[in-house]
Design a protein around this nucleic acid. Structure first.
Lengths: 182, 182
DNA sequence: CTCCTCCGAATGAACGTTCATTCAAGGTAG
DNA sequence: CTACCTTGAATGAACGTTCATTCGGAGGAG
């Protein structure tokens, strides 16, 4: 399949950026990791920046899907948040490369473009949750960015750091995050 | 004074990395920003990595000083934490470049070396606080990294994002961070 | 005081390497 | 044969680093 190579390129970039940073993710290294020729990446993407942004939006979309996949919409806000938070953490803990890649992008000059690219997806499950009336009514009147930093961002960073935490510790942390924004 | 140039180089690197990332902080650009010749930086530092690590430890040391400068050691743990947190936030809010630089370094491959370099300073005021008996007794048994992520890291990221927050919002957030780790 | 010598910090052009990107050539499917 | 995809060597720009050279001023000689 033709798109397999595009997937391989995105995945290789994510892996190398997570492992070695942007310095260690040259296009030739990405192509080698993906098992294709250097020029092949440029068949699917106009530039390296394009690959980075495509990998970023893909990674975020997968995270969003994993977060809401088994979410019970009938749960009350507090438990719904906890389930969302834990699903995020577990998805990234199982894929630390994703967590490390997200953090590198979000703290680099790609932050702005990546934010724009992510907003172009109007189906973001996190935004959908935040705008649900029962949750919105419980949230403090902080900007969305602040809500994100306090609530979800800790899950990403803890997963990226690879520290082992027990289930009860995770429950405590998820609750602490909920208290911070509610 | 001779060291003025070393300071200028560190400051220029921090500014350019904060503004443009490591990509936009070439040694020639850093030297230009510092107002010195390219080679001059290598009179004071053996390599670019050296400049990055020196700027990182300097930035962290300044943050530590600002955090404890006016700290009343007689305050009970909860209020001491809040004062520490707010002092951190205010210092970085006044110097967003510092906050952005710290985040870029900590989410790049410099993370490991930077951590080591920071630990070589045995007078870290944050570690000193964490090891004070009255505070330690109130902290949850999380690894230090987790405590840092939940307690102090939000202050850095909120300051870096440049969002305007009222004093009462800051108080709420500081308390939420304390609840997360206590 | 004037002149000359010497020192080492400062300089920036030059070096070798690596980067992102291109494209002519070869391969494959229909 | 045609049409399209894949390849990887080629390209020039930009990188980190080096080093032959410059130059202001400290200090001794007359």
């Amino acid at each position: 399949m033709a798109t397999d190579r595009a997937v391989a390129v995105r995945t290789a970039l994510r892996t190398l950026v997570a492992r070695n940073g942007f310095h260690g993710a040259s296009m030739s290294a990405v192509a080698r990791e993906a098992g294709v020729a250097t020029g092949t990446a440029y068949t699917y993407y106009a530039s390296k920046d394009d690959v980075v942004l495509a990998a970023y939006t893909e990674t975020k979309a997968e995270l969003g899907e994993a977060a809401v996949a088994k979410l019970d919409e009938a749960l009350p806000p507090e438990q719904r948040f906890r389930a969302l938070w834990l699903a995020c953490y577990r998805h990234l803990k199982a894929n630390p490369t994703h967590a490390q890649f997200l953090l590198q992008v979000e703290h680099s000059p790609y932050r702005g473009p990546a934010h724009e690219a992510a907003l172009s997806n109007p189906d973001d499950p996190f935004l959908a949750q935040v705008t649900q009336p029962d949750i919105a009514a419980r949230l403090r009147p902080f900007p969305v960015d602040v809500l994100y930093e306090l609530a979800l961002s800790p899950a990403i960073r803890l997963a990226a750091n690879g520290i082992e935490l027990t289930q009860s510790q995770l429950d405590e942390i998820a609750d602490a995050c909920w208290r911070a924004v509610s």
